[in-house]
Design a protein around this nucleic acid. Structure first.
Lengths: 230, 230
DNA sequence: CGGACACTTGAGGGGGGTCAACCTCAGTGG
DNA sequence: CCACTGAGGTTGACCCCCCTCAAGTGTCCG
């Protein structure tokens, strides 16, 4: 998996154990394991990378672009569990069978690893196992933060927190283009596209951000942060 | 951490890697690591085990009783992230600082391990590291299932799924006493105690369960399962 | 038997969903 | 160069599910 969109708050502290976080270059991910080499691959916009219920054969590392993973209910309701940006690993931690679907948001380059090889590396090299533990733990933190938002925060708080999270992941410039559609944001935050749209308009009206065409936003971070209880 | 309340669905498959799930007895948890020995300890009903923001010094294994872990917003809104029953490990995966609070639901016996020792064991024995990875992964799955419920399911679906999950964790007898209050259920499912109460009444009226005093329930599992889309 | 806490039930309100119309803009073809 | 098209986004009107507030009913334990 990966660090996904875990917000780096001031209280966050380096990983508990000695394994270090993977660096942006794919080559050093399974350092010291020459048999675990990633194969470059590309996906088009909206292309499925793997599907829920299929055998989990590979693990992926994003090099360029963006990926979303989601679960669906039988009637089509969708919950996005994470967005994956360059440097992130995804597809791990799902046993023999994929527990969600992964799709490319845009044209996306990845490195593909065989899951079995990664697991073999984990059982033979303790640093790899610790690294995988560290990544799973990081994803777990992210999932629990999302749980708190979905369970207990208002639409405005969720959207404000989401914008700050994306800004953070994208380099904390304060100005950026959202890499996903309103539908993706809605399905991530447990809301509807109309509510996302209305909330963004409201935030702009309140001076918490400026917009320029659908995707481009400039955050007023101190005001947004004031809206997010924590 | 632990398997928490992860529902075992028909599609679920044994852990991906070779590490085996810990057994109910604490002694075999860090097998082959004589330096990692748990110290027995007890907590009273509603007693705090550790608090969010404190240094994470220990890891815990439930022997008897039940524990909840939760996060709180500054205005008091609470989200329970998991209930931990006998056999479950909790308190792992939070770096140097606790990212949530843990409290005993009832009088609870645990085994306490020093976090540093567990981490040391992980870096020296690959089976331990894999076991910890496996547990983190299992917790991640659970958190993502909860995310789907909170984001996309109705109150009735959440309560029905919750009852089936508890039944499963408690041995699938179909009849059991809920180990937690309505408030705990509400704070786990992102609802209010009134909605929990009304939903249970409605489910009873629909013949999906029977109640006997506040906590005791008998599930009509096929009817409940029909209410839970998946 | 009485007090406290957990739980239930009702009445009313609001946040966000639903449905529908409209706008914007990039792409495509004439 | 412009008309057409369709997907993504915005906005409004209405409604419903769940929350809020409030009053009751167990039920456990002194």
């Amino acid at each position: 998996m990966s660090t996904e969109f875990t917000a780096r708050t001031a209280t966050q502290v380096p990983s508990a154990h000695s394994a270090q976080v993977p660096d942006i270059e794919g080559s050093a991910l399974f350092a010291g394991c020459p048999d675990v080499i990633g194969t470059p691959f590309s996906y088009d916009r909206e292309e499925e990378i793997y599907g829920e219920g299929e055998e989990a054969e590979f693990v992926y590392k994003v090099l360029d672009g963006a990926v979303r993973t989601h679960k669906v209910l039988s009637d089509g309701r969708r919950q996005i569990t994470g967005f994956h940006l360059p440097g992130d690993l995804f597809g791990l931690g799902q046993g023999e069978i994929n527990r969600h679907t992964a799709e490319a948001l845009t044209k996306t380059k990845v490195l593909i690893f065989k899951r079995r090889q990664v697991e073999r590396a984990a059982t033979s090299r303790v640093e790899v196992a610790c690294q995988l533990w560290s990544m799973a733990t990081s994803d777990l933190r992210h999932a629990q933060d999302l749980t708190l938002s979905l369970g207990r925060r208002s639409a405005q708080e969720r959207v404000a927190a989401f914008l700050l999270e994306v800004d953070d992941r994208l380099g904390s410039a304060g100005t950026f283009a959202l890499p996903m559609t309103r539908r993706d944001i809605a399905d991530y935050l447990g809301l509807t596209i109309e509510t996302i749209s209305r909330t963004l308009s409201q935030l702009e009206e309140d001076g918490a951000l400026r917009r320029d065409g659908g995707r481009q936003v400039s955050l007023h971070r101190t005001r947004l942060r004031r809206l997010v209880e924590d």
